[in-house]
């Protein structure tokens, strides 16, 4: 199925839960609501004409300093799906606010989501509801804050031993 047909199918099936769809440089993207996210992900994996067996990547983007989007939801959690059977890709996104940065987990759909979600929690402070063990992945437990947020200064060090610089 080509990307445009995929997006049309998603819109037809999930209606208003698909907030927005677009195509940019050949990449097809659908933004879905948080409530529908798990249903959409599960459907993408199980529907034979899509068959997204792989969650290639899961990450987040902090839009707090993006021109024109300062006031909207702060974070976007981005899912990149790939199908080995059909050799196609799809990008799904879900938007969340800073005060309510909580996304349902995808660990039971794809076990790899475990580490990816831990990384997103570590770097952006977005929590995942239902994650079995949401610890930091890359930074140490003593670290305060989430370094990939746009308001975290790049050189704010929190050394465990030794001086800060």
């Amino acid at each position: 199925m080509d990307g445009a047909a995929m997006l049309a199918e998603l819109r037809a099936r999930f209606g208003s839960d698909v907030v927005e769809t677009h195509e940019h440089r050949g990449d097809h993207t659908a933004v879905v609501t948080r409530e529908a996210l798990r249903r959409v992900l599960a459907w993408c994996r199980d529907e034979p004409s899509l068959a997204f067996e792989m969650l290639t990547d899961l990450t987040a983007v902090d839009y707090v300093k993006y021109p024109g989007r300062q006031d909207g939801p702060r974070f976007e959690v981005v899912y990149h799906l790939y199908s080995l059977t059909h050799n196609h890709r799809l990008r799904l996104k879900v938007r969340v606010d800073e005060d309510d940065a909580l996304v349902p987990t995808a660990v039971d759909l794809w076990p790899i989501a475990d580490w990816f979600e831990r990384e997103v929690w570590d770097m952006f402070g977005v929590r995942f509801a239902g994650h079995p063990d949401l610890r930091r992945l890359l930074m140490y437990e003593e670290f305060v804050g989430h370094p990939l947020r746009k308001d975290y200064p790049i050189d704010r060090r929190q050394p465990l031993i030794g001086p800060a610089s």
Binding site: T56, D57, T59, V61, D62, K65, Y66, P67, V78, H80
Partner: peptide, 18 residues
């Protein structure tokens, strides 16, 4: 994989390496 987000300026807004 590289996932790059641009905000129209001369700096990448976000670079994600898969």
């Amino acid at each position: 994989g590289f996932y790059v987000v641009s905000d129209g300026t001369d700096r990448p807004y976000r670079v994600r390496c898969r």
